[in-house]
């Protein structure tokens, strides 16, 4: 699924790396706990989270993810966006709650991927 489709589905504002919206992601993970993302996630392209700090971008970068969708109306700071720019990470922000965002995206065909 193209990141662009996810942005449209979540009615999200794209805040970083708009030029990469045509990249594809094949699975996603929703969590506010970066420890769990690091420990349980594999081969996922999209991180859906309501946690906002620079470690969210670093965690996604470590996991080779390509995009982050911030939910619950959370807005990343300029510092976070600058970090995302360096990592070429698409950043989107949506008013949806986590459950709704995950539900919509899952229903459209993006799945959770393979656990370690």
């Amino acid at each position: 699924m193209k990141i662009r489709e996810i942005a449209a589905m979540a009615n999200a504002e794209v805040l970083c790396c708009e030029e990469l919206l045509d990249n594809e992601v094949h699975s996603a993970c929703g969590s506010d706990m970066m420890s769990d993302v690091l420990a349980y996630v594999k081969d996922q392209g999209l991180l859906i989270t309501g946690l906002v700090n620079p470690q969210v971008v670093r965690t996604a970068e470590m996991m080779d993810m390509r995009a982050i969708l911030f939910v619950r109306g959370k807005k990343p700071t300029p510092e976070i966006l600058a970090l995302a720019k360096q990592c070429e990470m698409v950043i989107m922000a949506s008013e949806l709650r986590m459950f709704e965002a995950c539900g919509l995206i899952y229903e459209s065909g993006l799945k959770g991927g393979v656990l370690k």
Binding site: M33, M34, S35, D36, A39, T49, Q55, T59
Partner: peptide, 27 residues
């Protein structure tokens, strides 16, 4: 042990301190 953590609450609010660090490093 997975899940054992002595991290302060403030660290958990930043998304870490789930007690997965050392086990995940080993894994």
């Amino acid at each position: 042990q997975a899940g054992y953590s002595t991290a302060p609450e403030q660290i958990r609010s930043l998304g870490f301190g789930a007690g997965m660090g050392l086990p995940n490093m080993k894994a």
